[in-house]
Every structure is written in C-alpha cells, then in structure tokens.
Amino acid sequence: MANIRDVARSAGVSVSSVSNVLNGRTDQMRKETLLRIEAAMVELNYHPNRAAQQLKTGQAKMIGLLVPSIVNPSFAALAREVDLAAKNNHGYRVLLGNTYRQEDEEQAFLNDLMSHGVRGVIVVSSSIEKSHFAEAAQRGLTMVNYDGSSVGGSATNDMLYDSVSMDNRQAGRIAAQYLIDQGCREIAFVTEASRTVSRSHKIEGFLATAAENGLKDHSQVIEGKALTAYGDTEMAELGHHLAQTISRLEKRPNGIVAINDVLAIGLIAGLRSLGVRVPEDISVVGIDNISLSRLIHPALTSVAPPLAGMANTMVERLITRLNTPQIHAEEFLFTPTLVIRDSVIKRNE
C-alpha cells in the first residue's frame, strides 16, 4: 500500500508538499506541481489515513452545520452553499445537524461534534447567547453564528463567535420601499409570531421605511402562531392560513412583505383560493429568494441574500480561526438585493 513518501517520490516533490495538498494548503503552490501530486496519488491509488491525521492533530477535517430544519428551503440552500465552500475551497466535509431550535438537540449536536474530533461549527439558532454555546466555546469549539448579527462590521475582544448575516433591516427596507414605489399605500408585514433577531430586524426596517414615507398609520404587522416553536417547518401552511385573516380585514393591505418566501408562497395560494388576485388586488414580496420563487405563478418578487458569499466567508473564517485561534471574532454584514418578478403590481398598470 502506497504512503505519502511514495507519492512524494513519484511526483518529484517533498513530503511537505504532498502534505500541503492533503490539507488544502495549495494557494501558494504552482499549478504544475499540484497536478503532478494529484496524478501520482491516482497512479499509486493513494488514500490518506484520516484516522491517523485526526490522532496527530486532534481534529477531523470536518466542520459542523447546525440548522433548525432542513425542510425549510432557505436552510437547505444554505447547507448546499456551505458544503460547496468547505469541500471545494478547503477539502473539508460538513456534518449537518437538524435541531428544530430545541436546546437539548443543539447541545447534543455540539457534544457529538466534539466527541468526533470536529472543532468548528456554523450555528443557525434563535439565540447564540444560550449558555450551552458559550460552554462549548470554552471547551474549544470554534463557532460562526449565521443570521444573528446585531450591529455588523465591528471587532471586539469579547466576542466568542464570528457573526455573518444579511443586513436584515435593509431587507425589510428594500421590500417596503419597492411596494411603496409601485403605489401600495396600505402595507403589511406578515410573519410567524415568534421572534428571532433576524425577524425583528426585518420588521424594524419595514416599519421605519413606512414611517419615512408617511405611512406609519397605514402599515401593520400581521402575525400567526405556528404549532411548533418558530414555525420553521410550517411556513407554507401558516401563509395559507393567514390569507383568510388578511381577506377579512376591514383595512385590507394592498401590499405585503412576507417574512420569507415559503410563507409568501403559501399566502399567495391562500389568497388565490379566496378569489383575491396577486398582484392585481394584493402585491406580495418575499425574502430569501429560494429557487421555488421563480417557478410559482405569479413568480415571486423577493429580497435575496448573497448566500454564496456569506457561506464562503463563514467557512473561511471558521477554518482560519481553527488554525489561528488568537484571531479575534468579527461581525460581517452583507447587503441584500431585490429580485423583481411578477408578484407586485407595476405603478402605471
């Protein structure tokens, strides 16, 4: 069975060069050298001993991704981008944990990561301030918090985790402003009632924009309560149910921002079943820009996060801090963009 020295001898390079390839440190390597090493590995049918590497370093070449539920298409899209960034850019695998925002499930997943030698995790949680996250960090688990930013762009010595987020206030602002620009004068933000940081910030941006346009008394937040906490797996059904609530309102909105695209899709289906036309009677804007948004009728206008860039940053920061623990945690805030489709009435129509 070939070993790393055999590969180095066949490729005409040092053992350390082969080690650099195995550990994803190829950014300073000449392309011809990399190709020779990869060809030698194929020719010799060489496969690195990952168990031996873990014993040597105390770490597995893996990172964790903790999400509330993969059923939610926005979290599925995030998982895909994180997996691509980790695998293609760094040679890391991703272990996925569905935790449904339950503290015991989150804690169990963190413990499982540690026991398998995984020392880095991207966390999507309703509250990164929970004590079990701090305890895991103190035990040596490096974390990046997704979509929970409070300020953005700052670096402090006291932060335990990097934070990577879309500017959620700006997302709410962009959606509200587009409805107003297209002539909507009774607007509403429709959401599940449980609050996360990101949900609160979207609502804040929406209400601030309404007030700035003289629509403070013509804007409202319409909430529905899911059966399970935060409603991550129930958004389409909740949107369909809330359509009935909206259709019965005395002051019915003619423009709606939905907390995410899945709720917006359920809402549009519910409104259609009640004979309410979208966008002729009510315009709808979603947030997240999931792939289904362009396939429904009418195709959904949505606020899009730069998901690939955010995933690349999270993985890069995680691996950088794993290799250089003295680097201080930072916050990274990404600007969303509006993807215009057909679910909002055009101003002059």
Rank of each mutant, 00 (worst) to 15 (best):
A11H: 05
Y230C: 01
Y178H: 15
V151A: 00
E103D: 15
G117Q: 05
V285M: 05
N312L: 11
A76T: 12
G153I: 05
R321K: 10
A171I: 05
L65E: 04
R277G: 01
I70H: 03
L238D: 06
I287K: 05
Y230M: 08
E204H: 14
H201N: 11
Q102L: 14
F189D: 00
A76L: 11
N289A: 12
Q170L: 15
N72A: 07
N254G: 04
A171G: 11
D281S: 10
G172E: 04
E106R: 00
G286S: 08
K225L: 05
N20G: 00
G270D: 09
K225E: 02
Q177H: 12
A243N: 04
R80T: 15
A76H: 04
G97E: 01
Q59R: 15
E81P: 08
L141M: 13
T245C: 06
I256G: 08
I345D: 03
A79T: 12
A329T: 08
V257F: 01
N98G: 02
I222E: 03
E223Y: 02
F75S: 01
L96N: 04
M62W: 11
T26E: 09
N20E: 02
L96D: 02
I4P: 00
Y46V: 12
R294H: 09
R347G: 03
V151N: 00
S291C: 09
H47N: 06
G183I: 07
F133P: 01
R294T: 15
V315K: 00
R9K: 14
F109E: 04
G239K: 09
I63F: 04
F133E: 01
E129N: 13
T313G: 02
L113M: 10
